[in-house]
Amino acid sequence: MKAKHQRLTLALLALGAVVVAGLLALSALKDQASFFYAPSDVKRDGLPLGRAVRLGGMVADGSVKRAADGVTVHFTVTDGAATTPVVFAGIVPNLFREKSGVVAEGQFQADGRFVASNLLAKHDEKYMPPEMAGKMHETKTLAPDRGS
């Protein structure tokens, strides 16, 4: 084989590899990307069942209840316009508290509850997930008089 031909073959192989990577990635993305929802999105568009999603909003005031087993937590996530009940078994993040922001990873159930497998709370005073900042802003303009 001539050097030129080999170079061409290798270039085509590399190109093929990149295309394969792209196709693989896109096909996996289709069923693995987890979308971000706020309670009012769910209210408007219906429950996204059978897939991992993220739910974000504020932990509603007075909604955090611990179950008798000591490790399961029930609470409500609100974005000012709608609410979603959430169940989580595990150690809640240190900055998880009422009237504070939270992002829950998990799945919606047919009865409308959200079963979280992981909770992300604010890291520190400066931290707010950008998704959440966007959603909060959105709701603020929709419902300016949501009170405290």
Binding site: A21, G22, S34, E105
Partner: peptide
């Protein structure tokens, strides 16, 4: 290179999607 491509796509996809107003995250399952 293929692995690099996959990681790159998985990392940038949420950012590109966000600029089109779709919020999603790509995690370990992908």
């Amino acid at each position: 290179s293929v692995i690099l491509g996959i990681v790159l796509i998985g990392t940038l996809y949420p950012i590109v999607a966000a600029s089109f107003g779709v919020q999603l995250s790509v995690g370990p399952p992908f």
